[in-house]
């Protein structure tokens, strides 16, 4: 008799749960992980493992300390860790990566109540925390395949700083300097298509975000293809801007959210001090998200707007 669960309606049970969704996201991240290992060597894998593991440990400890039931089995901490690692350069000292995991999981996620209640995407905020704190470590890029030539570990600027002589094909495949998971647009798009087919994410945000950047840079006289394949745009648009708890729930809201992300990204890239603006754009729109949700709330069927006041 103790097997009965008393709960309010709706009583439809769904086979989809957080764990399955997060597992799909992890599967979708595998191509990008493989690409990063090919381009940046085994250390890319080590950084990813360290981030994922430290995120899980911090999540466990935080929940334990706050006397809340543990949520590490829903895999969301693993996803945060992998996404954070994808936002770091491959040469990052490992203790900095662990510090980023701490900030992402404990400060951004658990202090605000855990999964579903974080005000911003933990991985993005963790990256910005590290970027503001350790600017030198966070912007030391190495050229792809640097590990095959140990003598000459050339550091290169991200293509966003200097677009001359960078071929669009290299940008598309990921054969350029950058954070370890963001360089290969091809691998990220494969993951994105998988997520859309599995209905884990709606294609509205990535498509609107990327096309906003494409159109704006075209109008402003940049090479739009290079702009959408370079930097963290693909990673951000497909995997970070689509986070459920920090993106609007209605389709109209998603459009506004993604267009806002695109506008800010282009503004920072072309007119700002920083070469890349994807993470700041997403963080800013995360914070605005509750307002968008309120402005685009769907009207209940049959509701008549009260015009007379009172």
């Amino acid at each position: 008799m103790s097997n009965f669960i008393v709960s309010p309606s709706p009583h439809i049970s769904s086979p989809i749960n957080t764990r399955k969704i997060m597992l799909d996201v992890l599967i979708a991240l595998v191509p990008a992980l493989i690409a990063s290992i090919i381009f940046f060597g085994v250390r890319a894998f080590i950084v990813t493992i360290v981030c994922a593991l430290s995120c899980v440990i911090f999540e466990y400890l935080a929940r334990r300390l706050m006397k809340r039931n543990n949520t590490i089995s829903d895999l969301s901490a693993v996803v945060t860790g992998v996404l954070l690692a994808f936002n770091l350069p491959v040469t990052i000292p490992l203790w900095i990566a662990v510090l980023g995991s701490f900030f992402a999981i404990v400060v951004v996620k658990q202090l605000f109540g855990g999964i579903g209640q974080n005000f911003a995407n933990p991985a993005i905020t963790g990256r910005i925390f590290l970027f503001v704190s350790f600017a030198v470590h966070m912007t030391t890029w190495v050229k792809p395949f640097y590990y095959t030539n140990k003598v000459d570990m050339v550091s290169s600027a991200t293509p966003l700083v200097n677009m001359d002589g960078v071929s669009t094909l290299d940008l598309f495949l990921g054969n350029v300097g950058g954070c370890l998971g963001e360089t290969s647009a091809l691998a990220l798009i494969i993951g994105g298509i998988y997520l859309v087919i599995k209905k884990v994410i709606s294609p509205i945000i990535p498509l609107t975000y990327i096309s906003t950047v494409f159109i704006l840079t075209l109008v402003l006289g940049e090479n739009p293809l290079n702009q959408i394949f370079a930097g963290g745009l693909m990673l951000g648009a497909i995997f970070m801007a689509t986070d459920y708890s920090t993106s609007p729930s209605t389709n109209k809201g998603k459009f506004i959210f993604a267009i806002g992300c695109g506008l800010i990204t282009v503004a920072i890239r072309l007119f700002g001090n920083y070469p890349e603006g994807v993470s700041f754009a997403i963080l800013f729109m995360n914070v605005v998200c509750p307002l968008i949700d309120r402005a685009t709330a769907t009207k209940p069927f049959g509701l008549v707007k009260n015009k007379g006041g009172k």
Partner: peptide, 8 residues
Amino acid sequence: EPIIFFIT
């Protein structure tokens, strides 16, 4: 190594 975030 200073964490510059804290003086922002």
